[in-house]
Simulated scan of single mutants.
Amino acid sequence: MGNQIIDSSQVDGAILVVLPKFIGDAINTLPALELLKKLYPTQRVYVLGRPFMAHLFTRAAHYGTEFINDKRYCNEQKHSLFKMAKELKQLDISIAVLLRGSLREALLLKLAGVKNVIGYAQNARSPLLSHALKLNQSEHYIYRYCQLINIPHGRPFKQFSAPKLIPKKTTCALSKKRNVALYLGGSVKGDRHYPHDLSLELINNLVMRDDIHLYLLGDKAEREEMETLRFKAGENGEKVTNLAGSMSLDILVDTIGAMDAMISIDSGPMHIASACGTPCVAVIGQGTSPWSNVAPKQSNLIALHHNSMSLSKPHMIRDITPKAITDVLATVF
């Protein structure tokens, strides 16, 4: 095939997609997977991702892909690069699409004997790609991923659909009130997390409403900080449930999908809420990427941006006050 246009009708083997390593980025790949499945409706489309991501893709089964654990990142029986390549070699892969921009992933596919590899020409990996596209840094991540499908196939698509996750009925016992999830981030999120003093003020402002029950989300590393917030809420803490560190990624999708609304920093849970159709107020401070490149495209998300003049990154997010957040949430209800 080389750099020529790929004719999907002439491709007999399986298709492999290498996922990014973060939750939000993986959710943003879903439109590209949909385009790929339209091009190859009868072929097996595998997605290779880190083991924890498998839970997320159980809620994206409607995209028709098969998840493969990247055993290089398993805690037990961890594979080497060569052993993982040997395993992939058994899948009869005709085309691989790199949705992660690392040299290591391109080398993996070279060792796996995949002849047709699509990816962006970055990180000195162009010699390992059959179709090396020029990366437009200003494009939204969803566009970047979709272009890796559209351009090599002769641009058959004019548009794409927004990412969608389908949650299952949650097993979490929810209140009969309006249930609102909060992902404010712990100190592990660095400059992105909502400061604890403002988080406590926000919690107290919200639970003053008798019709709201709050659910604090987070991973195991954030559980203690979320429990401290709940404890400091005093009597109001009875209207707050700490779920941080208590669920796998699929259950997190189900829980967020069951909420009446969510408040979140720029994060994976924010992208989950958007993809589940849960109304979400996003608190945008200093992000890891320009907001224009990662912002969810669903209409159920309302973004609050800081207008801080501070040169200190940790202070930027403080410009978004608890009152501003509760005022916006009031428009959702």
Rank of each mutant, 00 (worst) to 15 (best):
F82V: 15
L56E: 04
A85C: 10
G287E: 10
S80E: 11
G154F: 02
I95E: 05
S130D: 09
C280G: 04
P167K: 00
V281E: 00
L111G: 07
F82Y: 14
K134L: 13
L56F: 07
F57M: 10
F57S: 05
K164D: 02
D266H: 06
D210L: 11
I118W: 00
V17A: 08
K169A: 12
M262P: 00
D7A: 10
I151M: 07
N3L: 12
K38V: 11
L311Y: 00
N28M: 15
S130C: 09
T29N: 09
P20M: 09
P31F: 09
I166Y: 05
R100T: 11
M226K: 03
A54I: 09
R59V: 01
R100Y: 11
S246V: 08
C146K: 03
K110H: 13
E235K: 15
C146N: 06
M84P: 02
I6P: 01
D92I: 06
P156T: 09
K169V: 13
L108G: 02
V180K: 00
G218A: 07
E66R: 11
R318D: 03
N69C: 13
S9L: 12
I212E: 02
E201T: 13
S130A: 12
T170Q: 06
K86S: 15
L107S: 07
S130R: 06
A173L: 09
E34Q: 13
G49A: 13
Q90M: 13
N236L: 15
L99G: 06
N307V: 13
G154S: 08
T228S: 11
I151H: 04
V47H: 12
R178W: 03
L35G: 08
G234D: 03
L81E: 05
L243V: 01
E227L: 11
S310L: 08
Q286P: 05
C276W: 01
H62D: 10
H62A: 14
E105L: 02
E66S: 14
I149F: 02
V17E: 01
T171E: 14
M259A: 04
D191S: 14
L304C: 08
S264C: 01
L16H: 02
I6W: 03
S8V: 10
Q122T: 08
T29F: 07
A85N: 06
S175R: 14
P41D: 14
I166T: 15
P322E: 04
D25Y: 06
T331E: 07
V97L: 08
K313H: 11
A181R: 03
Q90N: 11
N116V: 07
L109F: 05
A124D: 13
N28F: 05
Q137D: 11
A221V: 10
S102L: 04
Q147T: 13
K176H: 09
R192T: 00
L243I: 05
E235N: 12
D327C: 08
G186C: 09
Y183A: 02
G64V: 03
P296W: 01
I23D: 01
A221G: 14
M208V: 12
Y120D: 05
P127C: 09
T288P: 04
V117D: 02
T42E: 13
L128K: 08
I166V: 15
R72V: 04
C172S: 12
L129Q: 00
K323L: 08
A261Q: 02
Y46E: 12
R209K: 15
E87Q: 11
M226D: 04
I142L: 03
D254C: 10
K134V: 12
L200F: 07
